[in-house]
Simulated scan of single mutants.
Amino acid sequence: MTTLLVTGGSAGIGAATARMGAARGYDHVVVTYSQDAKGADAILRDIEEAGATGHAIRADVRDAAALSALFDRIGDLPPAPLHLVNNAGVVTPTGSLADLTPDRVRAVFEVNVLGAFEVARLAVAYMQAHHGGHVVNISSAAARHGSPGQYVDYAATKGAIETFSVGIAHELAADGIRVNALRPGLIETEIHAKGGVPDRLEKIGHTPPLGRPGTADEVAEGILWLLSDAASYVTGTVLDVTGGR
Results as ranks from 00 to 15, higher is better:
Gly159Asp: 02
Val105Cys: 09
Ala88Asn: 13
Asn180Met: 07
Phe164Ala: 05
Pro184Asp: 12
Gly195Val: 06
Phe117Trp: 11
Ala155Arg: 00
His206Gly: 07
Gly115Ser: 14
Gln150Glu: 14
Thr94Cys: 04
His130Asp: 15
Pro148Glu: 02
Asp217Arg: 12
Pro102Thr: 09
Gly205Lys: 01
Trp225Gln: 03
Arg121Ser: 12
Pro213Asn: 07
Arg144Glu: 15
Val166Phe: 11
Thr215Trp: 05
His192Tyr: 14
Ala169Arg: 03
Val91Trp: 00
Glu188Gln: 11
Ile161Asn: 01
Pro93Val: 13
Gly159Val: 05
Asn180Gly: 04
Glu190Tyr: 07
Thr189His: 01
Val136Gln: 10
Ala169Pro: 05
Pro213Leu: 06
Ala220Gly: 03
Glu110Ala: 12
Lys158Gly: 08
Arg106Gln: 12
Pro198Ser: 11
Leu122Gly: 01
Arg200Glu: 13
Gly176Ile: 05
Pro209Thr: 11
His206Thr: 07
Ser165Trp: 04
Gly167Arg: 06
Phe117Pro: 00
Ala143Pro: 02
Asp175Ser: 15
Arg121Gln: 14
His206Lys: 13
Thr163Gln: 10
Val136Tyr: 06
Ile191Asn: 01
Asp153Ala: 10
Ala143Asp: 02
Asn137Ile: 03
Leu227Ala: 08
Gly211Phe: 09
Ala107Lys: 06
Ala160Pro: 04
Ala129Val: 12
Gly195Lys: 06
Val197Gly: 00
Leu210Tyr: 14
Val219Gly: 05
Tyr154Cys: 00
Gly196Cys: 09
His206Tyr: 04
Ala142Gln: 01
Leu227Asp: 00
Asn180Ser: 14
Val136Asn: 05
Ile177His: 09
Lys194Asn: 09
Val105Asp: 07
Gly133Tyr: 05
Ala173His: 15
Ile223Tyr: 01
Arg212Tyr: 13
Phe164Thr: 03
Arg144Met: 14
Gly195Gln: 09
Phe109Thr: 04
Val135Asn: 04
Glu188Trp: 04
Pro209Tyr: 10
Ala141Asn: 14
Val166Trp: 15
Val108Asp: 12
His130Ala: 13
Ala142Ser: 14
Glu118Ala: 13
Ile138Asn: 07
Ala169Thr: 06
Ile191Cys: 02
Gln150Lys: 15
Asp199Met: 05
Leu186Asn: 08
Asn180Lys: 03
Arg183Thr: 14
Ala125Asn: 14
Ala216His: 04
Ala173Asp: 09
Thr94Leu: 11
Ser140Gly: 10
Leu97Tyr: 03
Glu218Thr: 10
Leu186His: 03
Gly149Lys: 09
Val108Gly: 02
Glu218Gly: 13
His145Lys: 12
Glu110Leu: 10
Thr189Phe: 05
Glu118Trp: 00
Ile223Arg: 01
Ile138Tyr: 01
Val119Glu: 02
Ala98Leu: 15
Pro102Ser: 14
Gly176Gln: 09
Thr157His: 02
Arg200Cys: 08
Thr94Met: 15
Gly159Glu: 07
Lys194Ile: 02
Thr215Val: 08
His131Glu: 12
Ala116His: 07
Leu224Cys: 03
Pro209Phe: 12
Gly95Cys: 07
Arg106Ile: 08
Ile161Glu: 02
Thr215Met: 10
Ser96Ile: 09
Phe117Arg: 06
Ala181Gln: 07
Val152Thr: 15
